[in-house]
Simulated assay, not measured.
Amino acid sequence: MPSTDVPPAKIGDCRPGPDPAAWRGRLRNYYLLVRLHRPIGTFLLMWPALWALWLAGQGHPPWQVVLIFVLGVVLMRSAGCAINDFADRHFDGHVARTNQRPLATGAVSPAEAVGVFVVLSLVAFALVLLLDWRTVALSTVAVLLTLVYPFMKRFTHVPQLFLGAAFGWAIPMAYMAVAGAIPVSAWLLFIATLIWALVYDTQYAMVDREDDLKIGIKSTAILFGVWDRLAIGLLQVLMLGLLLGIGLDAGRGAWYLGGLAFAAGLGVYQQWLIRRREPRACFQAFLNNNYFGLAVFVGLVLDYAVGG
């Protein structure tokens, strides 16, 4: 008589399958981790890359290269957010602005954050492999800068220099990918981007200054102290001066100058926003830098398209 026992191999058949709701929740946590809901960082990384692509391509960069850089910007900014939150996992819970980030709340584990960083970096590297080998070699520096920057705020009051280098490294990469060389003007544009990072990230750090002082985080907002507005203003003037010289050297005309003039007006507006050093207004000044970068880019595009 046949046995009526259930074969051991079928014992696990009744186990529930993956819970779609749980996976949706986890993906949402990853979405928040890489801050796709707050694209300001992506824009601040993208504008210098686009400036460089248009200047290197004399107004006509190859569209496939532009697409690779735009996708790469999104991926590397997202990777940067993941490794930044891993580096700050013991601090974010003590800062009002960051205490709801996924690592601070425990919604994402440190190991998951590192995994997200590695996966996104590898995908970005795969994109760069579509370009020439010299651009690929330069991309390794970008990954290293992205990895190092989040830890610098423990050792120096100017971590923004490392942020600016990470955000600006797309400039030599863009020139190499489009023009096959990195001229002096590209390095001047890189320096201008470093200065810009000092501007907007000081405004950003002014939001958290009181919390950072309590927990021992270093920043330019703390370093500059009561001279923060003056320092930001001088840096804004220096950056605009560099952009002016770069544009004139590239033969740019009235449309580009108009873009710089509009950007200068935005710089004045940012100074007005931070006049009382109120956290909310300082954060608005930081966000306004997106329009600053856009103004420079639009002026550049129009100058090549209309000005000739």
Results as ranks from 00 to 15, higher is better:
residue 104 A to M: 06
residue 171 I to P: 00
residue 188 L to K: 10
residue 148 V to T: 14
residue 131 L to G: 00
residue 168 G to I: 04
residue 100 Q to F: 07
residue 80 G to N: 13
residue 185 S to R: 06
residue 182 I to N: 12
residue 125 F to G: 15
residue 148 V to F: 12
residue 165 A to R: 11
residue 145 L to T: 01
residue 148 V to R: 11
residue 174 A to I: 04
residue 98 T to E: 03
residue 78 S to A: 15
residue 121 S to P: 01
residue 166 A to I: 13
residue 83 I to F: 08
residue 128 V to M: 15
residue 129 L to H: 02
residue 120 L to D: 03
residue 175 Y to F: 15
residue 144 L to I: 15
residue 79 A to K: 08
residue 147 L to H: 06
residue 103 L to I: 02
residue 129 L to V: 00
residue 184 V to T: 11
residue 194 L to Q: 13
residue 72 G to E: 01
residue 72 G to T: 01
residue 88 D to N: 09
residue 198 L to K: 02
residue 167 F to Y: 13
residue 127 L to M: 03
residue 191 I to S: 10
residue 100 Q to N: 14
residue 203 Q to D: 11
residue 145 L to C: 02
residue 181 A to Q: 14
residue 179 A to K: 12
residue 196 W to Q: 01
residue 136 V to W: 00
residue 167 F to E: 04
residue 71 L to Q: 10
residue 127 L to R: 02
residue 87 A to R: 03
residue 204 Y to N: 06
residue 86 F to K: 09
residue 132 D to E: 15
residue 178 V to M: 01
residue 132 D to T: 09
residue 140 T to K: 08
residue 175 Y to Q: 02
residue 168 G to D: 04
residue 187 W to Q: 14
residue 183 P to I: 03
residue 157 H to S: 14
residue 160 Q to L: 10
residue 99 N to L: 13
residue 125 F to R: 09
residue 101 R to L: 05
residue 182 I to R: 11
residue 191 I to A: 15
residue 144 L to E: 10
residue 200 Y to V: 12
residue 120 L to F: 07
residue 150 P to R: 14
residue 161 L to I: 14
residue 159 P to R: 11
residue 124 A to Y: 03
residue 166 A to Y: 13
residue 113 A to I: 01
residue 142 A to R: 09
residue 145 L to Q: 03
residue 79 A to W: 05
residue 119 V to M: 13
residue 203 Q to P: 06
residue 99 N to S: 10
residue 80 G to F: 14
residue 185 S to H: 05
residue 155 F to N: 10
residue 148 V to M: 14
residue 191 I to M: 14
residue 85 D to K: 04
residue 179 A to C: 10
residue 181 A to T: 15
residue 100 Q to W: 04
residue 90 H to A: 15
residue 183 P to W: 05
residue 143 V to F: 01
residue 167 F to D: 03
residue 124 A to Q: 03
residue 164 G to H: 00
